[in-house]
Design a protein around this nucleic acid. Sequence first.
DNA 1: CTGAAAGCGCTAACAT
DNA 2: ATGTTAGCGCTTTCAG
Lengths: 359, 359
Amino acid sequence: MGRTPSSRPTLARVAERAGVSVSTASLAFSGSGPITPETRDKVLAAASELGYTGPNPLGRQLRRGRSGIVGVVIGDHPGRAFRDPVAVQVLDGLVDVLGTEGLGVLLIPGVDLGQDAVDPLLETAAMDVAVLVWGVLSEDPTLNALQRRNVPVVVGEGRAVEGAPLVALEDRAGAAEAVRHLVELGHTRIAEISLPFGRGERSGPADAERLACADRTPTAHRMAGIRDVVDPVITWETPASLVEHGRDAATEILGTWVPASERPTAIVAHSDLLAAGAVIAARELGLSIPEDVSIAGFDGLDLPWLSPDVLTSVHQPLREKGARLGRAVIDLLAGEEPTSIALPVGLVPGTTTGPVPRT
Amino acid sequence: MGRTPSSRPTLARVAERAGVSVSTASLAFSGSGPITPETRDKVLAAASELGYTGPNPLGRQLRRGRSGIVGVVIGDHPGRAFRDPVAVQVLDGLVDVLGTEGLGVLLIPGVDLGQDAVDPLLETAAMDVAVLVWGVLSEDPTLNALQRRNVPVVVGEGRAVEGAPLVALEDRAGAAEAVRHLVELGHTRIAEISLPFGRGERSGPADAERLACADRTPTAHRMAGIRDVVDPVITWETPASLVEHGRDAATEILGTWVPASERPTAIVAHSDLLAAGAVIAARELGLSIPEDVSIAGFDGLDLPWLSPDVLTSVHQPLREKGARLGRAVIDLLAGEEPTSIALPVGLVPGTTTGPVPRT
DNA sequence: CTGAAAGCGCTAACAT
DNA sequence: ATGTTAGCGCTTTCAG
């Protein structure tokens, strides 16, 4: 019963079989146009007889000149793309909002910072807009490729790009708030564990010269916010926002400071994962939190595994940020003026910060 | 300088300007066909003069009848799609391999288990193949939608589907191995913390009737493997593979058992996240690991934050699994016979399992 | 409310 | 090595 037809049925064949014109058949599927219920049923019946499963998206896309696809560049290191819970939550919000408009998200692996080659999808894949979740560097190969192709861009968390809406965070203010909290608790010797600076993955203390190289915007903004309040006694650069790097950094910062009386009494990290690593390092060194050392993070992640500690952290609206990015995409496609925005953040004290230890 | 042309330049315009035919111009870009270097340069020059940035993917796709897009259904709960490090690592491997073939990954949010509505992208988006990372249920709306559209499917981790390659895990054997390890250490009272059963999110102890409902394949397989060796004294069902649910489950399992002498001496969890939650619960209850209770997981995740404990876990090759899925996709597109495979897993003992406590 | 016709931009036979 | 031609499958004016 029912030989497989050599090729997929087309709208034309359905129309023919239903005894109507293609345009009418098209109407039957689009649902929008004026069409008698009977005609529509006739078309639908013919379609199901032929095993026609609806208009071929490729034809529709070419005709409309739109793919309905949004390219999302995520991650700054291939193979590590989704290990970042921050990016992942943003992505979640983004997918949600775009889904309501029938837009699909095409994943595009980010480039290795420091290399100039970009993913071929960036050059060839069909997309109506691209979203750069992680912001842009000063000379960003990803952004360049997109601009060469005239693909409109929405930027999350970064420096503004000509003609592209920017969904940013008030992370400078947030970082300042975190440090102010520490200062109010009496801390003066505050160490900083920072996010990657940009190109090249380095780890270790950063001197003034290196500090000037911070090119990645979240890093630069948070560094600036911290310095709005106090100058860190040391800045430890990490190659990625991962627990293990936070742990390594804090082990160095807390363990090797001589004399111990000059040890920093507080650590402010650029991310919660780094801060969590610092908490673990402190525990391993036998230090009490916050009695011996206070630790503050940034992001507001839910980290049940840090229990019983709850990280003091600058919360940012991650899913909301994704949703805003999505809305910016939709606006852009609707031909509206791109509007940028900076989302508010706020410090939420946990159990990991307290008064400076008395000496 | 340079008014914006009303509409994007096309290959035809480039050809015209270069004084060649469209097909020649096409050749200049495809790079494959026979063409003199001079002609090619002429075309390329004309292109850059016109600001032509390469063939429009939409036209190419329609012509070729292929979109170069692979739909990947991930997550079984919208808005929670990427919170699962297991799925995320699989995705990583998948994106990697597909990238080498120029194939893009279109994210498709999974349906809410238990609801029959599917994401509209599933019905309308262009895709050459779809990958169901998380396997299929017995009556899977996602799979149904795909089959209706005649989209070829590759299934990860699940029951076999007619004509679809299956990239599975030997998780039954792996689960058995974990339990055998516990039994060899002398444990007899072993509790099980299980992954979700399928439709509907429930949490709590599962009776025999409920056990029979386990529809999601990884869950069913791991349950079977455990029972190949021993019958758990209790099976605690969780609504999702999250640390907090593992913690809740273990708190109940370890805390409320009366008399305490009948408390399970070991817990085997269907996932590392659940197991990690159990470790945290045990710590909170003041129990030593593994002196008071042994805990084994499944997945082989790297969990630096569980330090100093290292989870005893059945390691599965996650990125490899993603890569295999990708290769299955590529084979399918090349018209080759779909071949299924079951990847090996292996127990890697950590610090969280030890001999049964002497009473 | 329905039909006819025009093409979206490209590639791949085929012919030269 | 290059040109000619014919669509891929669809939507959308524009007439009727």
